[in-house]
């Protein structure tokens, strides 16, 4: 336990030391979205799914903040340590592949969680944000955070330069998240975009989180939760195998 705790402490220590970049910036970004889409444009949009547009947007924004921070923390932390070869200190320690993987995952997961919680508290003070189905919301947010934290580890281990990490974030992650329906309900889209959205995994994640908060969904909740669980297990397994074989970590 001391090992796992120390490995995790290193990751948490890192993001707490550069809070302006790791916590301040994402919070500001989220609140800019809330003010632009919620306050400024929201009055023109009116109600969506029976709630104010600003209330409709916040669950997606909380999820997006969780996901992107979990991802970017882990991908940058691992790549940076690979560059400095500082990661050799962990790799030549008696820590097991599983301990290494969990610690690297938890770094981004906890950062994303922290930002999600702060955003939630602040948003609750500004608007009346319901939590309709906590028993869905918390597992869903946990799984989303875990999935993207693992994805960050995956990209960080494989990346050879910082461009690889920003490519994944800018060209894959952001479009999937934005087009997954953070700012709109997919049911409002014309065809074929409505159908295409159903191939975007993030659509199901946002729907789950929105259902947890607002209590409305146009997808099957349990099916989505099941698929998300499988996706989390799959990526964790892939990463575990990578750590066990030492792929791109041990020469």
């Amino acid at each position: 336990m001391v090992r796992l705790f120390s490995l995790t402490r290193r990751e948490v220590n890192r993001f707490l030391k550069i809070p302006r970049q790791t916590i301040g910036a994402p919070l500001l970004e989220t609140f800019l979205y809330i003010s632009i889409f919620g306050a400024a444009l929201g009055s023109r949009v009116g109600d969506l799914d029976g709630v104010d547009y600003v209330v409709f947007v916040i669950p997606g924004l909380i999820m997006m903040a969780f996901a992107i921070n979990a991802f970017s923390n882990n991908s940058s932390s691992i790549l940076q340590q690979k560059f400095q070869r500082a990661i050799d200190d962990q790799l030549s320690s008696p820590a097991s592949p599983g301990q290494l993987l969990i610690a690297f995952t938890l770094g981004g997961f906890l950062r994303g969680l922290l930002i999600a919680i702060i955003t939630f508290i602040a948003a609750s003070l500004l608007v009346d944000l319901p939590v309709e189905h906590a028993y869905i919301l918390f597992p869903a947010l946990f799984l989303v955070g875990w999935f993207f934290a693992q994805l960050g580890v995956f990209v960080g281990v494989r990346a050879e330069q910082f461009d690889d990490v920003s490519f994944a974030q800018t060209f894959i992650l952001q479009p999937l998240i934005f087009l997954g329906g953070v700012f709109y309900s997919a049911s409002l889209l014309p065809e074929p975009y409505q159908t295409l959205t159903h191939f975007n995994p993030v659509y199901y994640m946002i729907s789950l989180v929105r259902y947890g908060f607002l209590g409305v969904a146009d997808i099957s909740i349990w099916l989505s939760l099941g698929i998300l669980t499988v996706a989390c297990a799959a990526i964790t397994l892939v990463n575990y195998r990578m750590f066990k074989s030492g792929y791109k970590l041990r020469s």
Partner: peptide
């Protein structure tokens, strides 16, 4: 931290 990786309390 190094001590922690090696299991020292």
């Amino acid at each position: 931290l190094h001590g922690g990786y090696f299991g020292m309390n």
